[in-house]
Amino acid sequence: MSDAVPEAGIPAAAEDEPGAGPVPEYDPAAPAPLGVPRTPTGNSEVDAQLERLADADHLATDGHVEVYEDVHRGLRDALTALDARPGPPAPPSTYGSRS
């Protein structure tokens, strides 16, 4: 019996299980989904950018920056487009002019 304890997140060897092959080596730098839920906003442009974040789940950490910058650019463009759209006219003032 061994007193060795595997580190958290590292699978223990399955040597005692019949037919078990070698346990794959744990690589903490390997791409792994973060499992962060993305709730739809109702704005199709923003939702498309939020879904683009899922692309980072399949990249190594050094590839995340490109995805994050692309999403940031897209969200900024979506917000700028909202500012550029004409809104409803302002309601007339209920105050009379004072002289």
Results as ranks from 00 to 15, higher is better:
residue 98 R to M: 04
residue 81 A to I: 06
residue 73 R to Y: 04
residue 38 R to V: 15
residue 88 P to F: 02
residue 89 P to Q: 11
residue 21 G to D: 09
residue 7 E to G: 08
residue 11 P to Y: 00
residue 42 G to W: 02
residue 71 V to G: 05
residue 52 R to G: 01
residue 30 A to Y: 01
residue 77 D to L: 15
residue 67 V to M: 03
residue 43 N to T: 11
residue 84 A to P: 01
residue 2 S to Q: 02
residue 61 T to I: 09
residue 83 D to H: 07
residue 47 D to T: 08
residue 57 D to F: 00
residue 59 L to G: 11
residue 92 P to V: 07
residue 48 A to C: 10
residue 31 P to E: 03
residue 52 R to E: 11
residue 85 R to G: 09
residue 23 V to E: 13
residue 38 R to N: 07
residue 36 V to L: 14
residue 69 E to L: 15
residue 76 R to W: 11
residue 43 N to P: 00
residue 39 T to L: 10
residue 9 G to A: 01
residue 32 A to H: 06
residue 43 N to Q: 12
residue 56 A to S: 10
residue 65 V to I: 12
residue 2 S to Y: 06
residue 17 E to P: 00
residue 48 A to E: 12
residue 28 P to H: 04
residue 99 S to W: 03
residue 24 P to G: 08
residue 86 P to V: 08
residue 48 A to S: 09
residue 99 S to D: 10
residue 80 T to V: 15
residue 72 H to Q: 10
residue 78 A to R: 02
residue 54 A to N: 10
residue 1 M to L: 05
residue 9 G to S: 07
residue 87 G to T: 14
residue 86 P to Y: 04
residue 20 A to V: 08
residue 84 A to Y: 00
residue 11 P to G: 03
residue 8 A to I: 00
residue 86 P to E: 09
residue 77 D to R: 13
residue 44 S to F: 12
residue 7 E to V: 08
residue 25 E to M: 04
residue 87 G to A: 15
residue 39 T to Y: 07
residue 90 A to Y: 00
residue 81 A to V: 04
residue 46 V to R: 12
residue 43 N to R: 15
residue 67 V to H: 06
residue 18 P to A: 10
residue 72 H to G: 09
residue 11 P to Q: 01
residue 5 V to Y: 01
residue 55 D to M: 12
residue 59 L to Y: 02
residue 89 P to Y: 02
residue 56 A to L: 11
residue 78 A to P: 06
residue 73 R to S: 08
residue 30 A to M: 05
residue 62 D to Q: 14
residue 81 A to T: 04
residue 77 D to Y: 04
residue 82 L to G: 14
residue 98 R to Q: 03
residue 38 R to M: 13
residue 7 E to A: 13
residue 74 G to Y: 03
residue 56 A to I: 13
residue 77 D to I: 00
residue 90 A to H: 11
residue 63 G to W: 01
residue 11 P to S: 03
residue 22 P to Y: 10
residue 54 A to Q: 12
residue 42 G to K: 12
residue 80 T to G: 07
residue 97 S to R: 08
residue 87 G to S: 13
residue 94 T to I: 06
residue 76 R to I: 11
residue 41 T to Y: 12
residue 4 A to E: 06
residue 90 A to G: 14
residue 69 E to Q: 15
residue 79 L to E: 11
residue 98 R to P: 00
residue 1 M to Y: 02
residue 49 Q to C: 13
residue 64 H to A: 13
residue 3 D to E: 08
residue 65 V to N: 12
residue 9 G to K: 00
residue 36 V to M: 08
residue 80 T to L: 15
residue 56 A to G: 09
residue 99 S to F: 00
residue 42 G to Y: 05
residue 63 G to R: 13
residue 7 E to N: 10
residue 18 P to V: 14
residue 53 L to N: 11
residue 23 V to N: 11
residue 35 G to L: 02
residue 32 A to M: 08
residue 10 I to G: 00
residue 13 A to K: 10
residue 13 A to L: 14
residue 3 D to Q: 06
residue 88 P to T: 02
